[in-house]
Amino acid sequence: MTTAHDGLLTIDLSAAGDNYLALSRRLGRGSRCGAVVKADAYGLGMSKLAPAFFRRGCRDFFVATLDEGLALRRLLGDDAAIFVLTGVRAGREQECVRAGLVPNVFTLQQLRAWMEVCDQAGIQAACGLKVDSGMTRLGMTADEFGRLLRDRGLLSAANISVIMSHLACADDPQHPQNRRQLDRFREAGERLRDELPELQLSLANSSGIYLGEEYHFDLARPGSALYGVNPRPGEENPMSAVVNLSLPVVQQRHVADECWVGYGATQRAEPGSWLAVARGGYADGIIRAQGNRGCGWACGQRLPMVGRVSMDSTTFDISGLAGPERAGLAHIEVLNDAVTVDEVAGYAGTIGYEVLTSLGHRYTRRYTGS
């Protein structure tokens, strides 16, 4: 959806594809690289990005919901494996079976329900099993997993193709939880593989890929790093920037006397300073918490945000620009190679994932690259 908002969100498909290849090259021999395209490819457009990854050789895709999976199947056809990370709701299993999607199950009850639907359809459709290795989110508990291993009849009848878990602290390589989760997941995978020799194991997310080869197993599933978020916080970002967001300047003003700027009068503008108001605010994903601390970019300079971010506008101090630069100032970029997703997340007290998924739909979206 595009409107006459005039803000321009540019998404570089080539950069995203290059990120996929860079992550693939990090993996050990025998490990495949998938792509997480849930939440509309982190808000950037699954219909454009999933084919870009497919063209770079990706054949394993991860979505969050059945509807995302159905849309992706229509988009990519039958040559892609599509995993539904949060499973499938009761009553919609037949749709999942017909589309050839692989839902995660987290409980014995879900596993039996999936098998019953497959029996009714007369096919043995694959499912994934997610176990809780220490994040205490979605995943089969240790007690239920033990009962599953003891139920040989259920194991032989279930078509579990992959076992997964999710790392809680992969972006902190020194955190002891990484090793604890690795050990628990490896043990669970080995015990299940004793019964299901063809089973695949999947643990590593974007940051998990950088923890080392022992975390890679058969299938890695990066998400945020594909879209330019740094998988190694505190170190140089190995990923290419994917997004550029440019806001139109709708007013400039010269400050004659000291004054307050924005809601709540939280910041002063000094006499003699210059301000620019750009169209784009928290309704467009310019996260409100950036107020008084974030920045934009124009003419090779960072331009401080002044005052609180409004719903539809954001104010910048452009005093550092030369007169001709101010006169020609038509747009201010708030995401680019210099003002990165991770930097913006730091201003807003959040993570790059939220910055991307918050980007609004009033921008004109332009896709570059192939």
Rank of each mutant, 00 (worst) to 15 (best):
G208I: 01
A170F: 00
D218L: 02
Q181F: 14
E236H: 10
V242A: 03
D183I: 10
R253D: 05
D218N: 12
R184I: 08
G234L: 06
Y210G: 01
Q251F: 09
P222D: 06
L245S: 00
N178F: 05
V242H: 04
P233W: 15
V249C: 11
E190H: 13
S206E: 12
P197K: 03
H175C: 13
R179E: 12
S207N: 02
E214G: 03
E236G: 11
E235F: 06
N178V: 01
E190R: 15
Q252W: 08
S224I: 10
Q174P: 06
E187P: 05
L199C: 14
R193V: 01
V229Y: 07
H166K: 14
M164C: 11
L167G: 01
L211S: 07
P231S: 08
P238T: 12
L219N: 00
V249P: 09
P231Y: 04
L211K: 04
A225I: 05
R232C: 10
F185A: 02
M239Q: 08
L192R: 01
P231D: 02
Q174S: 15
E198F: 14
M239D: 00
S206Q: 10
E198A: 11
D172P: 00
H216L: 08
H175I: 12
R184M: 08
I209A: 01
D171W: 00
G189E: 04
L199D: 10
V243K: 04
D172R: 09
N230P: 08
L247Y: 07
H166Y: 13
Q177V: 11
A188L: 14
R186A: 09
Y227C: 05
Q181N: 11
G223H: 08
R180F: 12
R186M: 04
A204C: 03
I209Q: 07
A204K: 03
E214M: 11
P231N: 06
